[in-house]
Structure formats: structure tokens, C-alpha cells
């Protein structure tokens, strides 16, 4: 197990390094200029060159890459051109909002999605199974920004049940509980939107995996022994049907930091997604690279965690 773990960790590190270099190069190859502006206050070519030198953009790309990797090793992602502040600080400011939204969506998807997937498998081909399948696939096919606009339009603007956007009421007052309730109220619409359009994946995976397990002889034996059906399903079948869902969880872990650009925009959620959108529009290379690095790290980490969990649960993986 230890040798397997070391090998898998080195693989992950190499993957991350390659991803970082590629991300850096691709982002810098995007056409556009972080210093370009429209209008009478646009900079002259000489002024632009002076600023380019200040931000190190006049250096060859390889030199910029070396500086970036050196800085990364020290935990320094450089300074944002658009904000004039360290990228690390900006990312850390926005990370909690994205993690809250992403974490809530993960929780909703993997609790509700697993539960619904199990219900569907147990009631295969029933009316309930067909309805849940239809509704979940309809949600899956719905663009998140459209659903967000519709939900905000009805729930927040027309019925005024929840806030239409933002993460906190600027005039909210009170202690920790009041603040938590305020944040939760703002969280409901974006989390619901994101969950509706993504939950189908978990449900379908769980349904298919459980159906496979329910056909196996040991389940027949368990039922023949007279065990209660809920015990057969949750104790005997479900545990073995968790592996594909576990893999999916690892792959979805990056949602904790990447969030959803569209949903964050529509609901003015102050997370990394909306920060990255602004960085793309302004060609703020250090900020854009910083956000991409963070997502790449969590993608690699999620895959690594998923592999390790799989290996711990199933010895065949690490011995193969």
C-alpha cells in the first residue's frame, strides 16, 4: 500500500506541474491586453509600455513562467493587475463564499441524490422512478443561468421570499445567528439552482450501481434469510454500490473552489467564479492564473483522494 501511495502521489504531483505550466502558457496566449482601455483616458503607447514593464509583462514568456513557478513555490502568486493587490489574498477572500456554495451543492447532491437514486433503484420501473428520472434529466438539460434568472424572478422579485442576489444584507444587524440566517437565506437560491442542474448525475450513478448489486446472489441470500428489506438495501447492497458514487465525489470535489461562473454571476455571489470572470474580461493574468492554479490543485487532489479511498476500500485496486 505504501509503495502504491508514493507512486500515486508522485503521479499527482507531475500531473499538477504539467497542468500549471500549460495553464500559464494558455492564459498568456489569450489575445488581449490587461492595460488596454477604451476612451479618452486610454493610455498612450509609451505609458502602456511603462506599465507593462512595471508588471513584468514586457519580459519573455519563459522568463515570466520561471518567475511564476518560483513564486508559487514560496506561496506567492504575484499581484493582481486589476486590483493592485496580492493574488493570494484576493483568492483567500473569495474562497469561503465559493466553498460554502460548492459545499452546500455537494452536500445536497450527495445526500439527496444518493437517497433518490436508491429509491429509484428499489422502485425500478415504477411511476415514481419514471417521474424522478424525467425531472432530474430535465434539470440536467436546463442551463444554469436561465434557471437562476427564472428562480430569482419568481421567488425573489415577484414573491419576495428570498433575496435575489448577494451573500449578505448590507444592513443586516444582529449577532452570529442572525448573520448565519442571513447568509443561509442568500444561499438558498444559488445552491438550489446549481443543485437542480447537477444532481441528476449522482442519482443516475447511484441507481445504476445499486441495480447491479441488487442482482447479485448474496442479496438473494440476505432476502432468503428473512432480513428486513431496509436492512438488505442499506446495510448489504448500498455499501457495495457506493464505489462509483465515491469516484464521482472525487471528480466533483473541485466544485468547492471552482463554483459556477454563471450561477455566481446571476446571483452576484462573491466567489472565485465571479472573480475569475472579471479577471478574464480584464486579462488580469496573475489573478486568472492564480484562480486556475487553485482549481487545478483541487482537481488533482480530488482525483488523488478518490483513488486513495477506492484503494482502501477495494484491495484489488492497489494490487493490480
Amino acid at each position: 500500500m505504501r509503495r502504491w501511495l508514493v507512486r500515486r502521489t508522485l503521479q499527482a504531483a507531475l500531473t499538477l506541474l504539467i497542468a500549471l505550466v500549460l495553464l500559464f502558457l494558455l492564459i498568456h496566449l489569450l489575445p488581449g491586453d490587461p492595460l488596454a482601455r477604451e476612451g479618452e483616458r486610454a493610455l498612450t503607447p509609451e505609458q502602456t509600455e511603462a506599465l507593462r514593464a512595471r508588471y513584468g509583462l514586457d519580459r519573455p514568456l519563459i522568463g515570466q513562467l520561471a518567475t511564476f513557478l518560483g513564486g508559487l513555490a514560496r506561496g506567492n502568486l504575484g499581484a493582481s493587475i486589476q486590483y493592485g493587490r496580492p493574488v493570494t489574498g484576493l483568492l483567500l477572500e473569495r474562497l469561503p463564499a465559493t466553498a460554502l456554495l460548492g459545499g452546500t451543492v455537494l452536500l445536497l447532491n450527495f445526500v439527496l441524490g444518493v437517497w433518490l437514486g436508491v429509491r429509484q433503484a428499489v422502485r425500478k420501473d415504477s411511476r415514481e422512478d419514471r417521474w424522478i428520472t424525467t425531472l432530474s434529466l430535465a434539470g440536467y438539460a436546463t442551463p444554469s443561468f436561465w434557471l437562476g434568472i427564472v428562480l430569482a424572478g419568481f421567488v425573489a422579485v415577484r414573491w419576495r421570499l428570498l433575496p435575489p442576489a448577494g451573500m449578505r444584507d448590507p444592513f443586516g444587524s444582529g449577532g452570529t445567528v442572525a448573520t448565519a440566517v442571513d447568509v443561509l437565506r442568500h444561499l438558498i437560491l444559488p445552491a438550489t439552482t446549481l443543485s437542480i442542474v447537477t444532481i441528476a448525475g449522482v442519482m443516475r450513478y447511484q441507481r445504476a450501481a445499486l441495480l447491479d448489486v441488487l442482482r447479485l446472489p448474496y442479496i438473494v441470500t440476505a432476502r432468503a434469510k428473512g432480513l428486513p428489506e431496509s436492512r438488505v438495501i442499506w446495510r448489504h447492497a448500498w455499501r457495495n454500490a457506493l464505489f462509483p458514487v465515491l469516484t464521482l465525489f472525487g471528480l466533483w470535489l473541485p466544485i468547492l473552489v471552482s463554483g459556477s461562473v454563471f450561477v455566481e454571476s446571476v446571483f452576484a455571489w462573491p466567489g472565485l467564479g465571479s472573480l475569475a470572470v472579471g479577471a478574464i474580461g480584464n486579462r488580469d493574468y496573475p489573478l486568472l492564473v492564480g484562480a486556475a492554479v487553485l482549481v487545478a490543485m483541487v482537481v488533482v487532489l480530488g482525483t488523488w483522494l478518490s483513488d486513495v479511498a477506492y484503494a482502501m476500500l477495494d484491495p484489488r485496486v492497489r494490487t493490480s
Binding site: V111, L112, W115, V118, L161, L162, D169, F171, G172, S173, G174, V177, A178, T179, V181, D182, L184, R185, I188, S230, R231, I233, W234
Partner: peptide, 30 residues
Amino acid sequence: TRTTLEAWLGAGLAGTAMVAGAPSAWAQRD
């Protein structure tokens, strides 16, 4: 068990409804 999970889900939905429906009571606003 399924019953426990359903109970948790039910509690979660009820909590959400309370949070959505009781803004003036908890989240005091200037």
C-alpha cells in the same frame, strides 16, 4: 437506515423553509 435518512432530509427541508420564511424574526434589518 432509510427512515433515519428520510428524517434528516425532512428536517433539512423544514429548516430551509423556516430560514426562508422567517427573515424578519431572525435576520433583523435596519
